[in-house]
Nucleic acid binder design. Structure first.
Lengths: 233, 233
DNA sequence: TAGGATTTGTGCGTATGTATT
DNA sequence: TAATACATACGCACAAATCCT
């Protein structure tokens, strides 16, 4: 008989996924704001590898629209202008509605519990608002919420588009005078409304509530960014 | 005064795009059927480069779902089972409808002319049906048709999902006893119907016609693949 | 069970492109 | 305009993983 040691997996695939997730989250949570140059050498050193496997990750992030490499110049975190962002938001709204239509998938106990604990965490955050923590919880909620559809391609696309817009939304909140505390409370309310719909198995309504909140968050952002002078200073 | 020679552009970016397009088309047109192992060494030799830049292209194709690399084993063209395919088709149908809703974009003269010449080419092909040429024209038509929306993210996603399913559809046509000639004629009719809608600026109807044809082609495929015994031999 | 053949993954030196002085 | 600094892109040798004999 041989032991089956719970070895830490560090195959090439695992190392790739780990670096990819870490860098993706740093970009989406504004640890690397748009325009930041990423040093291949520094990152390779941080992860304890050579530049070769790191560059694989950068190629992937570039194909996901989060980075852009320019020969001889550098690798930069992409920015998104307001018009392109509006197109993405309009599409995300339609896709959010589809989440409740294509293969509606009432949450299993595990997902249900995770959503409820997220609700609690967001309520807790509301007492001491923090933009980065808000971004983290927002990412987690979107990820879990996409589980309401059993349609995998739809899930992946919603995830992809969310990750493309998350940092711009966070950035606009930091740049304008949007009240983070107010946004956190609105977010907490969204989760509770969604949970209320899911509790009775009404996946379609949960999706519509979600769609409405995507729409409203973009509207608030546009008002704050385009007409900042209308906001009290 | 210096000459501005129309040099062939062969920057790193161009070389990448060229290799990517060539390999992508070979996969989607069944030059490399699902399951085929791609040799990094052979392909690098064919393109006259080392494995390094070629591997960049393979990473990209893997992120697009067309390839899968396994350490020590090889890089393989992915296959898609019928359930996953159905999910993708259902999503593609909904997105096709969105093409006519989000930023409807009546074709400019260039696009119009291109679609008309495609119609002619498909009619010509109907006389001497050929599966690969059919695949090529089909790819071109989808690519051009996506120009009816000004919503770029939607365009990219439709393109991406189409490229993921194209080869499976071609493969099922080759495997079963679907009449390629009949499919070509149906395709020609679809193009003409779409053109009829676009001629009067009715982008929404063009999108609905397109959606209907996506749906019907999947239905025909499912009937031929799942119940081949019902087909005359 | 072991070992060799083959394939992808990695490390590193060098080439090439860009911006600045 | 030329030279220098520094970034990404590339080529190659080797390591690691898998498969088959």
């Amino acid at each position: 008989m041989t032991f089956a040691p719970a070895e830490v997996p560090h195959s090439a695939r695992d190392r790739f996924d780990r670096m990819h997730t870490i860098l993706r989250d740093r970009i989406c949570l504004l640890d690397y704001p748009p325009g930041t140059r990423l040093s291949e050498e520094e990152l390779a050193a941080e992860f304890g590898t050579s530049r070769t496997p790191l560059r694989r990750v950068l190629v992937r992030l570039e194909s996901e629209g989060l980075l852009q490499s320019v020969h001889g110049v550098g690798t930069f975190v992409t920015d998104v202008d307001i018009e392109a962002l509006e197109q993405t938001y309009q599409l995300r709204m339609e896709l959010a509605e589809l989440l409740g239509i294509l293969g509606p998938n009432p949450p299993d106990p595990t997902l249900w519990q995770r959503l409820q604990s997220l609700s609690t965490e967001v309520r807790t955050l509301a007492e001491h608002p923090d933009a980065r923590r808000f971004g983290e919880l927002n990412m987690e909620f979107f990820h879990e919420f996409h589980g309401i559809t059993s349609n995998l391609p739809l899930r992946e696309i919603c995830e992809r588009l969310f990750l493309q817009t998350a940092r711009i939304w966070l950035k606009s909140m930091a740049a304008s005078r949007i009240d983070v505390g107010a946004e956190v409370r609105i977010f907490a309310d969204e989760i509770d409304e969604v949970l209320r719909a899911l509790a009775i198995g009404d996946v379609r309504s949960a999706a519509l509530i979600h769609r409405a909140h995507i729409s409203m968050s973009f509207t608030r952002m546009r008002l704050a960014v385009i007409e900042p002078r209308l906001q009290p200073q």
